[in-house]
Nucleic acid binder design. Structure first.
Length: 449
DNA sequence: AAGCACGTTTAG
DNA sequence: CTAAACGTGCTT
C-alpha cells in the first residue's frame, strides 16, 4: 500500500479529495491506489503543514489546523465505513467494539482504532500480502478495501505497475476491491487460491516505492521505518508469508518495524493539537503508544507491557512471568486472591505479550487449525509461549505487573488511545522468532518532542 | 517429546 | 448456548 505515501495530499478535505481524487496523483505519478483505506487515512495525516509547506507555502498554520480538523473528522468517518475489517476479522471486531465503548474522549477514535486494529498485519503491503494468506482465508474473505474508491480510477497505469512489481498476487484482489461500492465480496484471493499465494505474495513495497514519496524517502511507506522489515532482517519472512508474518509487529526492537517508528511524528510535522487527538497522546506517548499497540494486537492482557513504568520492554516469552499475568498458573482474571493456596487448577490464560499471543489470526494450516472442531486447540502459531510451559514452572513471583500497581486488572486493556494504535497496524514487520526481542521499545514509537 | 483427542473452563 | 481455548491423558 505504498499508496499511503500518497499522503501528501494537499487536499485537506477528504471528501473533496475523494471526489476528485486527483491531488495525490499530481504529486506522485507512481503512487496509486493500493488500498484506499490506507491512502485516504494517511492522506490527511500527510497533509501536515510541514509537508504541505513545500507545496503550498502560502498556507498559514491556522488554516492548516482547520483543515486538519476537517480531515480528521472525515477520516474517522471514512474509517468507520471501512469497517470491512471488523466484518472480516471477528476478533478485531470485538476489539473495535471495546474500543468504541471505551473511547473516552474522541469516540470516533475508537472506531478508527478498531478498524485499524483489524488489520493485524502491517500496513498496506502486509495487508495485501496477508490477504493471500491462509490465515486471511481462515477468518474471512480478503478485505476489499472498500473505502477508497479513489485512485484506481485516476491512476490506472500506476496501480498495475506497482502491484505487479510488488504484489503479483494481490493485484487481482485490489482491482476487484477498487470497484464501486468497495466490492462487498472482493473475493479476489479467497479460498485455496489465497493459500497458494501465500508463499510468494507480496513483499513489502519498500523497494519499489521508496523513491516515490518525498516524505518517506526511506521506503515509500508512511512509516519511515516500516521498511524496517528490511532493517530488521525479517523481510524474508514476510516475503514468504511465513506464519509469523501474521503476527503483529513484534519488531518493536526494530526501530524500523516499530509502530510509529523513527521520526514519524516529527517527520509529519503534525500540529500538536492533531497529534494529541489523532495520535492519542495524552500521556507520555511512550506508554500510550505501546498500550494502544497491544490493544490492537491482542485482546486480553496485552496492556501489561506498557504498564511497566520502568519502561522496560514487555516481558517476552522468555520471561513473561514478570507480567504477572499467568505466573503460577493463576488466572489473571481471578486476581491475585487465588494465589493463596489453591492456586493452580484454574486455566491459565494467554500472557498476551509473547509473540504467539500477539498474533491475531490463525494460520489455518497447522493441525490445531485444521482440527479446530475436534482439537480444541488454538493455532499453534498463536499458542502462548507461557502456556506452552509447564504450569508449575513459573518463577512463583505473582502479580508483579504494574497492572496491579495501578489498580487495573491485568486483563483489563488500557483505555487509552494512542496514535500508535492507529499506526500499529502499519507495523507489519514481524519477528516472532525472537519474541523476546520484539517487545515494543519506547524509542520505537519515535515519540519525541 | 511431540502430537492428538477430548473434557472442561471461560467469555461473549 | 456457543465458540474458543486450556489441561491432560493417550498415542506415536
Amino acid at each position: 500500500m505504498s499508496g499511503m505515501t500518497s499522503g501528501v495530499c494537499v487536499e485537506s478535505d477528504l471528501s473533496s479529495m475523494l471526489q476528485r481524487s486527483s491531488a495525490p496523483s499530481h504529486h506522485h505519478p507512481n503512487h496509486h491506489g493500493y488500498g484506499g483505506q490506507g491512502q485516504v487515512s494517511w492522506c490527511f495525516l500527510m497533509s501536515s503543514p510541514a509537508l504541505v509547506s513545500g507545496l503550498a507555502p502560502m498556507l498559514d498554520y491556522t488554516t492548516e489546523m482547520d483543515r486538519y480538523r476537517s480531515s480528521i473528522a472525515t477520516f474517522y468517518k471514512t474509517n468507520v465505513n471501512m469497517n470491512m475489517n471488523v466484518t472480516n476479522f471477528p476478533q478485531s471486531a470485538k476489539l473495535a467494539a471495546r474500543l468504541a465503548a471505551a473511547a473516552p474522549i474522541f469516540p470516533p477514535t475508537a472506531a478508527r482504532l478498531g478498524a485499524m486494529a483489524t488489520a493485524p498485519w502491517g500496513c498496506h503491503d502486509n495487508m495485501n500480502m496477508n490477504m493471500n494468506h491462509p490465515a486471511a482465508m481462515f477468518w474471512g474473505r480478503p478485505k476489499p478495501v472498500a473505502t477508497a474508491p479513489t485512485h484506481h480510477h485516476h491512476h490506472p497505469s500506476a496501480t498495475p505497475g506497482h502491484m505487479t512489481s510488488s504484489h503479483p498476487h494481490s493485484s487481482s484482489m485490489h482491482q476487484s476491491s477498487g470497484g464501486p461500492g468497495g466490492g462487498g465480496t472482493g473475493g479476489g484471493s479467497e479460498g485455496g487460491g489465497a493459500e497458494k499465494h501465500g508463499h510468494t505474495a507480496s513483499l513489502p513495497v519498500s523497494q519499489g516505492t521508496a523513491h516515490h514519496h518525498p516524505i518517506a524517502p526511506s521506503n515509500g511507506n508512511f512509516l519511515p521505518g516500516y521498511s524496517g522489515g528490511a532493517d530488521c532482517g525479517v523481510m524474508n519472512k514476510q516475503g514468504h508469508a511465513h506464519p509469523d508474518m501474521m503476527g503483529l509487529s513484534e519488531g518493536g526492537n526494530c526501530n524500523g518495524g516499530g509502530v510509529m517508528s523513527g521520526g514519524f511524528l516529527g517527520g509529519l510535522g503534525l500540529p500538536p493539537g492533531v497529534i494529541v487527538m489523532a495520535m492519542g497522546s495524552a500521556g507520555g506517548g511512550i506508554s500510550d503508544a505501546s498500550s494502544a499497540f497491544q490493544m490492537t494486537s491482542g485482546q486480553r492482557a496485552l496492556t501489561d507491557c506498557q504498564q511497566h513504568t520502568n519502561s522496560s520492554p514487555c516481558p517476552s516469552s522468555s520471561s513473561p512471568s514478570s507480567s504477572g499475568v499467568t505466573a503460577g498458573g493463576v488466572s489473571l482474571s481471578s486476581s491475585s486472591s487465588s494465589s493463596s493456596g489453591t492456586v493452580a487448577k484454574r486455566k491459565r490464560k494467554r500472557c498476551g505479550v509473547c509473540g504467539p499471543c500477539r498474533r491475531l489470526i490463525n494460520c489455518g494450516v497447522c493441525s490445531s487449525c485444521r482440527n479446530r472442531k475436534t482439537g480444541h486447540q488454538i493455532c499453534k502459531f498463536r499458542k502462548c509461549e507461557e502456556l506452552k510451559k509447564k504450569p508449575g514452572g513459573g518463577s512463583g513471583v505473582l502479580e508483579v505487573s504494574n497492572a496491579h500497581i495501578d489498580g487495573r486488572p491485568p486483563s483489563q486493556p488500557v483505555r487509552r488511545f494512542a496514535g500508535s494504535s492507529s499506526l500499529s497496524f502499519t507495523s507489519g514487520v514481524t519477528n516472532t522468532d525472537t519474541p523476546g526481542l520484539n517487545e515494543i521499545q519506547p524509542e520505537d514509537f519515535g515519540v519525541s518532542d
